[in-house]
Design a protein around this nucleic acid. Sequence first.
DNA 1: GGTGAAAGCGAGGACCA
DNA 2: TGGTCCTCGCTTTCACC
Lengths: 153, 153
Amino acid sequence: MDKVDAKILSALQDDARMTVAELSERVALTSSPCWRRVKALEETGVIRGYHAELDPRRLGYDVTAFVNVMLENHRADLGDSFEIAVQGIPQVVACHNVSGRYDFMLEVVAPDLEAFGEFARNVLRTLPGVKEIYSSFSLKSIKRTRSIPIPPA
Amino acid sequence: MDKVDAKILSALQDDARMTVAELSERVALTSSPCWRRVKALEETGVIRGYHAELDPRRLGYDVTAFVNVMLENHRADLGDSFEIAVQGIPQVVACHNVSGRYDFMLEVVAPDLEAFGEFARNVLRTLPGVKEIYSSFSLKSIKRTRSIPIPPA
DNA sequence: GGTGAAAGCGAGGACCA
DNA sequence: TGGTCCTCGCTTTCACC
């Protein structure tokens, strides 16, 4: 991980479809070593994958909600089955086990508020061990780049 | 937006570097129409871009925090300057204006808890109009696919 | 909307410094 | 490590259905 790698990561984080030719120009290297660096970054797991970013609205998802979930108790198996269940629900686009008052925070997409309400009632509330949920809605997306700042060294 | 487009979106959301050749095979089309569809999806904004997904840990970010921010009042200009300020801070990887007790929810990465503490004190707390912040930390990432479910139609 | 062909370029490997 | 060269296959754009 040197400065060249950092530049490569920035560039690919910004545009995953950039060709190695263009990338190598940008980092002042010829294409072979540049290509090898990219492969190394993929193999060592620094680059986890490449994904298209889609516009939820254009796909009919007008609602993004953050759902805080509290479990009934903290037995490990309860948390585990909750986690496994959550992974299988496509509307849940992200989920973290968090510190604080609640145990989990989920990011959920839904076509509209009504659909979200139904989803919360029929799906989320019925997940194993759920005691309480508190939802808050995204009124406006200020920043949605999941871009990680690349350390200069 | 038909079934073929849906398949294309799923595939690219999963692997943005998939070649058009491979894609066209998967959706049972020849490469030209497949390519045209991809271009159309890009131009109409359904596909917003392509990004490499990086591993925060391998870049030295061991802490992901969700920071809830309450502003002093709800004057529009206060919210605006907060939003603009937030957009310029690379450690803030996502930010939403949300409903509920707090006004904004930020997702922040930091090398460790100490660095996060400093960041919260020196940067977040000093942003325009900030009255209160409440942070909760990701203890475990259960699901981090930002993948949106593709509607079947 | 779809096909097939053609030109040009990039990916990826072999090999050298 | 980085650079050069080479080849195959893909991308991209035709003209046409």
